[in-house]
Design a protein around this nucleic acid. Structure first.
Lengths: 218, 218
DNA sequence: GTCCCATCCATAACGCCGTTATGTTCGGAC
DNA sequence: GTCCGAACATAACGGCGTTATGGATGGGAC
């Protein structure tokens, strides 16, 4: 039953891929505007002017639609971080990448929570293959670290390990910020995020800078 | 039997507080064993041998039950971290506290995700008052930092800010670990968690230790 | 041009969910 | 004994994801 047709062949009036894309966009909009619990197959179908069956023909069900949203979310995160310009100051590039990463999460907070397995969005959890789509974004960070080492700014180390440490700190702040737990302190961006990233980077540098860091911005 | 019946003065056979506690325990057990989505008022009532109305008389609904579970989860996290012995080595105390915090999250991962606003568990999100119940646990970390400064091991700084940085890094790792995203690297405990905490601590110390850290355990 | 049939989707139903309205059953106060 | 009110059973309502069924459509084979 392997319908050869596949990518182009099927469909009528509005092509199959168009309906699929339309459903994804509307679903993302609903999550962004009204939060993850507001997304349902029925409301989505109503907003798209179709029936719930469209979700099943294109995504196999709500979990499939969520997986497609997650993949798209990671693709955009990757784009966003990849758009950070590469300068001759690898450390500043890392700071800019952190700012871009955080800005992306803030622009679509509920999608970020869905991407990282929280906010289960109904029932089904993410599978292994849903997680590896985030690898591109992680590779991006590894390359920043490798550039820092090649430029002699960072000590030689396993780029994956160092990138994971950087990502862990950043993800921790983003999550605490999105869930509002970071409000236990005032002015968290200047007292927590940038000092934390600065402390980490300084420990990774070959020649740690001045012990009292000027809080760097952006 | 009822005996004292204490403050409420209500109830019959099994006292009101007993039923309430029983529902909480069974709900926590269901979340721990079968994940957050497996918890429902109907299944909980069936497991407790009562009707769904018990959830409403005692908690006002499922969101109220979730809030009670979150409060209990923070209370136990506080207990667990507070049980870390205070020695004359504040830095080692902080490492032990991190290990205890992580162990607590690993022992009940789904509850940890619910506590931190992820895994919305049905619908309702956490309110402000649900979040401040975590303040006790945060105060605990602040005290560790203050001890480190008083002992001359850590540089003088705002204990709240420093504690938040430490918490951010730790929470980030715990979340990435629970969602399995940290599997992008091998041996994450030794290549990410402890090096990250070590790098942060070393930047906070008055006299940074040897540049190449022996990876500390436990 | 004609036929064929895979594809897409509308409709309706099933079982689950949280929640609510209503009635019943008690323990304790008087 | 009488009464009150808290605690719970029962049943219903609307919404959810999902599935079964059938009708419409349009491209490919001939």
């Amino acid at each position: 039953m392997t319908g050869s047709v596949d990518q182009t062949g099927a469909g009528r009036g509005a092509s199959s891929a168009e309906v699929r894309q339309r459903l994804l966009e509307i679903a993302a909009h609903m999550v962004r505007e009204q939060g993850a619990p507001a997304l349902s197959a029925r409301k989505l179908a109503a907003a798209a002017g179709t029936s719930t069956m469209a979700v099943y023909t294109h995504f196999g069900g709500m979990p499939g639609l969520v997986r497609a949203m997650v993949a798209e979310g990671f693709r955009r995160l990757f784009e966003r971080v990849a758009a950070v310009p590469v300068t001759d100051d690898p450390l500043q590039d890392l700071r800019n990448a952190a700012a871009a990463y955080r800005a992306h999460a803030q622009a679509d907070p509920d999608l970020y929570m869905v991407m990282f397995g929280s906010a289960t969005l109904g029932d089904h959890r993410l599978h292994r293959e849903d997680r590896i789509v985030g690898l591109d974004a992680f590779e991006q960070i590894k390359q920043f670290m490798q550039r820092g080492m090649a430029a002699g700014a960072l000590r030689e180390a396993d780029p994956a390990a160092v990138a994971a440490q950087w990502w862990t700190a950043l993800h921790g702040f983003v999550m605490l910020e999105l869930t509002k737990f970071i409000d236990v302190v005032d002015d968290a961006e200047d007292t927590v995020l940038w000092p934390l990233m600065d402390h980490l980077l300084r420990s990774l540098m070959v020649t740690p800078g001045p012990p009292e860091p000027g809080v760097f911005r952006q």
